[in-house]
Amino acid sequence: MDNIAGSKSSLSWAVNISVVLIVALWLFPTVGLFVSSFRTADQIATTGWWKAPFAAEQNLTLRTGSPETQVQDGDVWVIEGNLFDEEGVEPAPISVWGTSSRDVGAYAAGETAETRAGERVTVQENGDYRMEAPEQIEGRRGQRVFVTALVPPEFTLANYQQVLFSDNATDSMAKAFFNTLTVTIPATIIPIVVAAFAAYALAWMDFPGRALLIAFVVGLLVVPLQLALIPLLKLHLQIGIGKGYLGVWLAHTAFGLPLAIYLLRNYMAGLPRDIIENARVDGATEFQIFTKIILPLSYPALASFAIFQFLWTWNDLLVAKVFLIDATGQTTVMTNQIVELLGTRGGNWEILATAAFVSIAVPLFVFFAMQRYLVRGLLAGSVK
């Protein structure tokens, strides 16, 4: 019964589970990146993003008050206060602490430690401390105290503020964001316009060599992009367009045209022939047929390729590196900016996570806004 058309397969549950697993594998990294972009550096360094809603133990480096605050109490000099007040940190319950980074958990809250200089330090669970010295302390800063505290969850917009509105060009993604839009939008529109005309000609116009042209387009689909980079760059430099937006637009157009023509041609060839023939009988020109009949009917295929081309161009690094030569950083795209951040901010995971999520926010919006046309466009010409 499983082979009867229209009947439900007994293995449909396996298909459903597989789809859920695939979606989860793609969704978890994106959610993790989104959550991490709102966390502080200390939280990212100590716990995973899945523990972001819960309090977690963190190692904090705090200091006692400066020697200027010491007072004499009998035979000893005393410095008192709260460690969190001294550093301007939100109070948190302290479980263990120490005076050396090599042994952060040497003492429990409420115990007393003796430093190398002979001072006695006592730290309470709420951060209150008392430091006693046999002689007056001079010529140094407050005593460093390493504590392990149960820090409540914290989310901040400071990462986005630094990434999007920083005055430092090395850290700011705002300029790179608009540069990427400047590259991506024309590099998506130009190949669609050119490919639409070419696909119509290959699908509905009879001329000598049409079959050879179709075979040539299919052959171009398997040509590696890297094979053409250097020759194309030399050509661009010779004609003076190798260091600006025009060169990268034409490069993306050239690399995207074969798939665009192939996809659109298959879709247009599957449209009903009667519509085109009736239009010709009524006296419509080829241009009128193309603009008033073919293009409106081909919207799913156009949207499908637009999604692919937009995503490829937005996430591109290689073509931008080769054809968008700029020593001043004025035309740096987001992918290149993230690479720069990896070099300058390699330890600042909160900045990298925020920059990465900013770079994928627009492609996610484009995909979800146009995904209903994706399958229809990809299946173009597969069935009659």
Rank of each mutant, 00 (worst) to 15 (best):
R210D: 01
A198L: 09
L227P: 01
P208R: 12
G209C: 14
L220R: 04
F207C: 01
L227N: 03
A195C: 01
G240H: 03
L221G: 12
P231D: 12
G240S: 03
I192F: 09
P191D: 11
V223G: 06
L232P: 00
D206P: 00
G209T: 07
K234Y: 15
L229M: 14
I241S: 03
L213W: 02
L212C: 00
I241T: 01
L237H: 06
I190Q: 00
A203W: 08
K234A: 15
W204A: 02
G219W: 13
L202M: 07
A228C: 08
F207S: 04
L235W: 11
V193A: 11
I214N: 15
A203H: 03
L233G: 01
L212A: 12
Q238I: 01
F207P: 02
G209K: 12
L225G: 12
G240C: 05
I192S: 07
F207L: 08
A228R: 06
A201P: 11
L232G: 02
L227Q: 01
Q226S: 06
A195N: 03
H236V: 07
L220E: 09
V223L: 05
P208T: 08
Q238T: 03
M205A: 01
R210V: 00
V193P: 00
H236S: 06
A196K: 10
Q226E: 15
A211D: 13
A195W: 12
L233W: 04
P231M: 13
M205F: 01
V217Y: 07
Q226I: 15
V223Q: 06
P231K: 09
L202D: 07
L225K: 05
P208W: 04
I230C: 12
I214T: 02
P224G: 05
P191R: 05
H236L: 08
L225A: 14
A199E: 08
L213E: 10
I192G: 05
F216L: 11
P191H: 07
G219Q: 11
V217G: 01
D206E: 11
G240F: 05
W204S: 10
H236W: 13
Q238N: 08
I214G: 14
G242Y: 10
A195M: 08
V218H: 10
V218K: 07
L213Y: 00
I239R: 03
V193R: 10
P231I: 15
L227K: 02
P191K: 08
L221T: 04
I230E: 14
F197V: 11
L237G: 02
A198G: 04
P224S: 02
V193Q: 08
I239C: 13
F197C: 04
V194G: 09
A195E: 01
P191W: 14
A201H: 04
L233H: 05
L221S: 10
W204P: 03
